[in-house]
């Protein structure tokens, strides 16, 4: 049953007449989401340029306290929205994933700006993660470089809409799942990819050896 059905006369009329002025009916999902939606606490977590726009959004002119988001928590344990504001680098990635793991369920990730969404102008860089969604589940992507505070608020409103549509069951179905923390090797390594990496490097070594012998034989000939 969708929550909108509750407004239909079929349900409304079931309330006794003398109580109609004082009783409202709703679903558990709806009232639960109403509470969650209006108290999304972002983590105080800035990575790069976008973080400055995030601070401006929190400041007097745009003031996202109007959405119940003014309590920016420095500790991930007390936050439920991670606004990935800026370029995620490989060196920072293990920390970002760890912070995500430490957040309380249900948690949301907003990729703010081009860099967090898909690498942005720095995508080709050797130390840049091209999109945080390769490692974390992202709920809302906000394009722009950087998105203006109003664009950020629009994105956060989109997130609120998403929260509104979730059911409690859905929200907690993923609870407690931890994402394996990437390891800094010769390049960043996702522990889930180890097998693949081994295959790839073996193949690469073989190809190199072949090329070397080919060059040698060409030289001797």
């Amino acid at each position: 049953m969708s929550t909108d059905d509750l407004n239909s006369p079929e349900y409304k009329d079931k309330i006794p007449e003398e109580l109609q002025g004082t009783v409202a009916i709703t679903t558990l999902d709806r009232i639960y989401n109403w509470g969650r939606r209006n108290s999304l606490w972002p983590m105080m977590f800035g990575l790069a340029c976008c973080a400055i726009e995030m601070i401006c959004t929190a400041a007097a002119r745009f003031d996202f306290a109007r959405f119940g988001m003014e309590v920016m928590r420095s500790s991930p344990r007390q936050a439920d929205v991670m606004i990935v504001a800026g370029t995620v680098t490989k060196k920072m990635l293990p920390q970002v994933v760890r912070l995500y793991n430490q957040m309380a369920d249900p948690k949301y990730v907003v990729a703010m700006g081009a860099c967090a969404s898909g690498g942005g102008p720095f995508k080709e860089g050797y130390n840049v993660v091209s999109g945080i969604d390769k490692y974390l589940p992202v709920d809302v992507y906000i394009p722009g470089c950087p998105p203006t505070p109003q664009a950020l608020i629009y994105g956060l409103m989109k997130l609120q809409q998403k929260v509104d549509k979730q059911s409690i069951k859905e929200v907690y179905s993923n609870a407690g799942k931890e994402i394996p923390i990437p390891v800094l090797g010769p390049d960043i390594m996702d522990p889930r990819d180890y097998e693949k990496i081994r295959e790839y490097t073996l193949k690469k070594a073989e190809a190199e050896a072949q090329a070397a012998t080919a060059a040698e034989s060409a030289q001797s000939a």
Binding site: V128, K134, M189
Partner: peptide, 24 residues
């Protein structure tokens, strides 16, 4: 660019590298 990378990510590893033997 990630679609052209064997890992789908911005990564590359030197030849012969074995992650199991890597000391963190």
């Amino acid at each position: 660019a990630e679609d052209r990378n064997p890992f789908g990510k911005n990564v590359d590893y030197p030849a012969g590298f074995d992650p199991a033997k890597w000391t963190p």
